[in-house]
């Protein structure tokens, strides 16, 4: 393997492209689904994709090369936690965000059920009139 290839595939170059790239890709796919798709269930799936992309981005912000999870159950971890453990703050935030995400999804889907009950369709281009 040549030197250029080796530097390209070295962890420090490849890392950000995997995690940042996949989070941005997930975000864009979700945005595309919300803007283009006409089916309500798919729009809700797109919303949850956007959430997942943002969560992945936040977690990869907290990662530090060569460090381990912030569970300080070993003597050397207890003595010098900063030296060995990654940043716990984004993880705590994302833990909250995932739970809020399922609440939002459940509410949205219950509204989808009611819409299907009233109109008999999930296609947003066919839902034209307002009726009770």
């Amino acid at each position: 393997m040549s030197e250029a290839l080796r530097t390209f595939f070295s962890p420090q170059i490849l890392g950000p492209e995997i995690f940042y790239g996949s989070s941005v890709g997930l975000f864009l796919i979700g945005l595309y689904m919300i803007l283009v798709k006409k089916n309500l269930v798919k729009i809700v799936i797109g919303l949850s994709f956007i959430e997942s992309g943002v969560n992945l981005f936040l977690i990869s912000l907290g990662y530090v090369w060569g460090k381990t999870a912030p569970i300080l159950n070993k003597p050397e971890l207890m003595k010098e936690p900063v030296k060995y453990a990654v940043d716990p703050v984004p993880q705590a935030l994302v833990l909250t965000a995932i739970v809020i995400g399922v609440a939002v999804t459940a509410m949205a889907l219950s509204i989808v059920i009611v819409i299907h009950d009233k109109y008999g369709t999930l296609d947003i281009s066919k839902i034209k009139e307002l009726k009770w």
């Binding site: 977690i59 990662y63 381990t68 999870a69 993880q91 833990l95």
Partner: peptide
């Protein structure tokens, strides 16, 4: 998990 966030 790969990003060292087992709780999440």
């Amino acid at each position: 998990y790969i990003l060292q966030a087992p709780d999440v």
